[in-house]
């Protein structure tokens, strides 16, 4: 019985390897020198394994600069999204105020408008404001995430109200409660959100493609995609590997947390 299970497991692993085969092949080829890749017929061998493709990614092309731009983009968007969502979720979970339900419904309506539908109007707006090829243009339209407001509100509603009352009686101000008690309590949800948010923003392609025209403003995704029109496979695949290593690392270490985050908001109870 145990033997049968083991054999079945091996089949499942083989299936998994078949699924990620393009990545494995790409990783191999990225270490082959240009001459070997160009050889017809193509042969997969690592006899002349070299790092030249990786070195050229940084010397022949601006991969370092693309990475910097991507990190700046994530560095602006992610904290803003998390912080504005925390503030709004605090209001919707802890206070009663006129128009609360209306405003909440209004915000939830935002989720009905897919970003792809309005992306061209947004682009025209950024163009009119003269923000093409600036970090402001790259990030200003996505500093807020309504889905995060919803998720954090759910999380805050599960925190006992008595905690807030007790803190208030002890003379803890509303902002102090928010920063020193509420935010630490949302740590797990925030961590999951940050991991997923990092991968999403870092991997975004269409918006950076629209609002950047100069090479020095390209993000890693648009930069590598642009490169794929003009360079040989080895260089392109090495650049693709460098690009992917960061989200893959995040994925390896944060998998469980991401899964939790992905499934938390998706299912009604």
């Amino acid at each position: 019985m145990k033997k049968k299970e083991f054999a079945f497991d091996l089949v499942k692993i083989l299936l998994g390897i078949a699924l990620v085969l393009p990545i494995i092949l790409a990783a191999f080829i990225s270490f082959m020198p240009k001459a070997d890749i160009m050889k017809i017929p193509f042969e997969l061998n690592l006899n002349n394994a070299t790092l030249e493709n990786y070195i050229h990614s940084f010397t022949y092309m601006n991969l370092g600069n693309y990475l910097k731009n991507s990190f700046i983009m994530v560095g602006i968007e992610l904290p803003c999204k998390a912080f504005t969502a925390l503030l709004a979720a605090y209001a919707f979970s802890h206070f009663e105020f006129p128009g609360k339900n209306f405003l909440f419904t209004l915000l939830m309506t935002v989720m009905m408008i897919p970003g792809e539908v309005i992306i061209m109007s947004l682009y025209k707006m950024i163009m009119k404001w003269g923000l093409i090829d600036t970090y402001a243009g790259l990030t200003i339209t996505s500093l807020v995430d309504v889905a995060a407001v919803f998720m954090l509100r759910q999380n805050m509603l599960s925190i006992p109200k008595s905690l807030y009352e007790a803190a208030k009686i002890d003379g803890c101000g509303r902002m102090k409660y928010f920063f020193s008690i509420l935010i630490p309590l949302c740590k797990t949800v925030l961590a999951a959100y940050a991991l997923r948010g990092f991968i999403n923003i870092y991997n975004s392609y269409m918006w950076p493609l629209l609002v950047t025209t100069k090479d020095e403003m390209r993000t890693i995704q648009t930069g590598v995609a642009q490169l794929s029109w003009s360079s040989h496979s080895g260089l392109v695949l090495a650049a693709a590997m460098i690009t992917s290593i960061i989200p893959l690392t995040v994925y390896f270490f944060g998998m469980d947390s991401i899964v939790e985050g992905m499934t938390a908001g998706a299912v009604k109870n």
Binding site: L19, V20, P22, I23, A26, I199, Y202, N203, Y205, Q221, T222, V224, A225, S228, V236, L237, A240, T243, S244, P247, L248, V250, Y251, M255, I258
Partner: peptide
């Protein structure tokens, strides 16, 4: 689950 971390742009390039 691994391809979830690979960007659609990078997958297309590969």
């Amino acid at each position: 689950a691994l391809p979830v971390a690979i960007a659609s742009a990078i997958s297309s390039v590969i």
